[in-house]
Amino acid sequence: MNQVYLSLGSNIDNREQYLKSAIRYLRNDNNIFVEKISSVYETSPVSKVKQSDFLNLVLKVSTKYDSMELLDQIHIIEKRLNRKRVLRWGPRTIDMDILYFNVDCLVSDVLQIPHKEIENRLFVMVPLLEICENDFYKKKQLVECVSKLKDTKQKIKKWS
């Protein structure tokens, strides 16, 4: 089984419902097993595109899929949840990203593992730290990055 961390975010309409629906689709896939779910965080957008705040969370899953198969499944779920890729870093019903896939490193035209923006995104780092295992190979580095990012203009708070 492959160990994977996924980031989910939504900032259109019923943000919480889109997150729940994405998790439900993942759980309904016989090749994906949701193991841990972080708290939900409300976060400011990081792009210059004017848009609403996001709700974000991170999942730990195990899967029988390889990384490209998992990416295909994520794209299917995003499409089911009306994800439109109109404006780069623009508003979206759901955004799902593979953060880590085992300890693999991969760079292709469609996928980079680890995700290239992890260390620049407080909305990824905080929930990731919340659920990552004590032996997660990057934990110390993640803690250092969160400390640096808290000095930026990115806003994050637990959402209830």
Rank of each mutant, 00 (worst) to 15 (best):
Val146Pro: 00
Ile118Asn: 03
Gln141His: 14
Asn134Met: 06
Ile113Phe: 01
Ile131Asn: 04
Asp135Thr: 12
Asp109Val: 05
Val143Leu: 13
Cys132Thr: 05
Leu129Trp: 01
Phe123Trp: 07
Cys105Lys: 12
Leu142Cys: 14
Cys132His: 02
Ser108Pro: 11
Leu106Arg: 04
Val110Pro: 00
Val110His: 04
Cys105Arg: 08
His115Cys: 11
Ile113Ala: 08
Asp151Cys: 11
Leu129Gln: 04
Ile118Asp: 03
Asp151Ser: 15
Lys116Leu: 05
Leu111Ser: 05
Lys139Gly: 08
Phe136Met: 08
Asn102Val: 10
Glu133Trp: 03
Ser108Val: 09
Leu111Met: 09
Met125Trp: 00
Leu149Ser: 08
Asp151Asn: 14
Ile131Gln: 04
Asp151Trp: 00
Thr152Trp: 05
Lys140Ser: 14
Val103Glu: 12
Cys105Pro: 00
Phe136Leu: 09
Cys132Ala: 12
Ile131Met: 06
Val124Ser: 01
Glu117Tyr: 07
Val143Gln: 13
Lys138Cys: 12
Ser108His: 07
Asp135Leu: 02
Lys138Ala: 13
Pro114Phe: 06
Cys105Glu: 15
Thr152Ser: 15
Lys139Thr: 11
Cys105His: 10
Asn134Trp: 00
Glu144Val: 13
Tyr137Ala: 12
Ile131Glu: 06
Leu111Gln: 08
Cys145Val: 15
Asn134Asp: 15
Ser147Glu: 13
Val103Asp: 14
Ser147Pro: 00
Asp104Cys: 08
Leu128Ser: 07
Ile131Arg: 02
Val126His: 00
Leu128Gly: 08
Asp135His: 13
Leu106Gln: 10
Leu142His: 03
Pro127Lys: 04
Ser147Gly: 05
Lys139Gln: 06
Lys139Trp: 04
Leu122Asp: 04
Val143Asn: 05
Glu133Val: 07
Glu133Leu: 13
Asp104Val: 06
Val103Ala: 11
Val124Ala: 01
Lys140Gly: 10
Thr152His: 08
Pro114Thr: 13
